[in-house]
Design a protein around this nucleic acid. Structure first.
Length: 232
DNA sequence: AAATAGATCAACCGCCAGGGT
DNA sequence: CACCCTGGCGGTTGATCTATT
C-alpha cells in the first residue's frame, strides 16, 4: 500500500525532496526511509534474483580495488543496489575470504604484498625494500599471501598470535609483479594506519617498483579508470 | 511437529559532505 | 565565516526465513 503510494508519487514528481515527500504523498514513513525504500526496492530498474557468477567475480574485483565503498561497486553493477551488494559481501563473500583453505584461490594469486617474518625474506623473490620492519595494520580480508609458509603473523611474547595484537603484522618487504595490482593493495590498506600509509605511498612513488611493467599507472589514472566506461 | 541455530536481507542509525542562506 | 538543510553513505540491527536436530 505504502509502496504503491511511494511509487506513484515518485513516478509523478520524480526523486528528491525526500524530507517533505512523506507529507505530500500521504506516507507515515520518514523521508529517509522513503528514499531507501525507493532506491533499494521500488525502483523499476532494480535487478531481481541471485547474484550471478560474473557479478560475484566483479564484486570481488571491485572490492579488492575499492574496499567497502558499496555505492561505487554498485554503480558498476547495473540494477544492483549498494545495500544488496553490501549484504551479499557480508553474508556470503566474506566467509570465503576468512576461510584459511581458500588462501590459494584466485584472489591469493596476487603476490604483490609480501608479509614476511623477520629476519630475511625468501631469496626466491626479488624484493624492493620500502621500509624495513615497518608495522602496518591490515584488515582481516585485505591481505593476499603467496602461500601460508611464506608469511606468518607476528607472534607475541606470550606465544599468542596476532589476533590478540590488533592485527599488527611485521612487514619487511614488497614484491611487485604488476603495478596496478600493487596500487590496489595499497588502497586496501587500513586507512587508520597513518603515518605508515604515507610511508608506503612514498615508497610507491619513489621506489624501484615504478620501473616495473605497467608501472605508469598512478592513483590519478586509477581514479580515471574507475570512472571509465571501459571498466571493468 | 516443535525447538533451536544459522542465514538472509530490508531497514534503521549516525555521520559526513555539499549547497544555500 | 557559521549555521541549517538535504542527500548519500557505510555499519549495524532485527525480523523473517530456512535448515537442522
Amino acid at each position: 500500500m505504502e509502496d504503491n503510494l511511494l511509487t506513484s508519487y515518485v513516478k509523478a514528481h520524480g526523486q528528491g525532496k525526500w524530507r517533505s515527500l512523506p507529507k505530500r504523498a500521504g506516507l507515515k514513513r520518514c523521508g529517509k526511509s522513503c528514499r531507501l525504500r525507493w532506491l533499494n526496492y521500488l525502483r523499476p530498474d532494480i535487478k531481481r534474483g541471485n547474484i550471478t557468477h560474473d557479478e560475484e567475480d566483479l564484486i570481488i574485483r571491485l572490492h579488492k580495488l575499492l574496499g567497502n565503498r558499496w555505492s561505487l561497486i554498485a554503480g558498476r553493477l547495473p540494477g544492483r543496489t549498494d545495500n544488496e551488494i553490501k549484504n551479499y559481501w557480508n553474508t556470503t563473500l566474506i566467509k570465503k575470504f576468512t576461510q584459511p583453505q581458500l588462501i590459494q584461490t584466485k584472489a591469493t594469486k596476487c603476490k604483490n604484498l609480501l608479509i614476511l617474518p623477520p629476519p630475511s625474506p625468501s631469496p626466491n623473490y626479488q624484493n624492493h625494500n620500502i621500509n624495513n620492519n615497518m608495522n602496518i595494520q591490515l584488515h582481516h580480508h585485505h591481505y593476499y599471501l603467496p602461500n601460508q609458509s611464506q608469511a606468518k603473523p607476528r607472534v607475541n611474547e606470550d606465544g599468542s598470535d596476532h589476533e590478540n595484537h590488533n592485527n599488527i603484522w611485521q612487514v619487511n618487504s614488497f614484491e611487485v609483479n604488476n603495478a596496478a595490482d600493487f596500487c590496489t593493495d595499497l588502497i586496501n590498506l587500513d586507512s587508520t594506519m597513518e603515518p605508515h600509509a604515507q610511508l608506503v605511498l612514498d615508497g610507491w612513488a619513489t621506489s624501484p617498483i615504478n620501473a616495473f611493467q605497467n608501472a605508469t599507472m598512478d592513483f590519478d589514472s586509477l581514479a580515471l579508470l574507475l570512472h571509465s566506461e571501459d571498466w571493468p
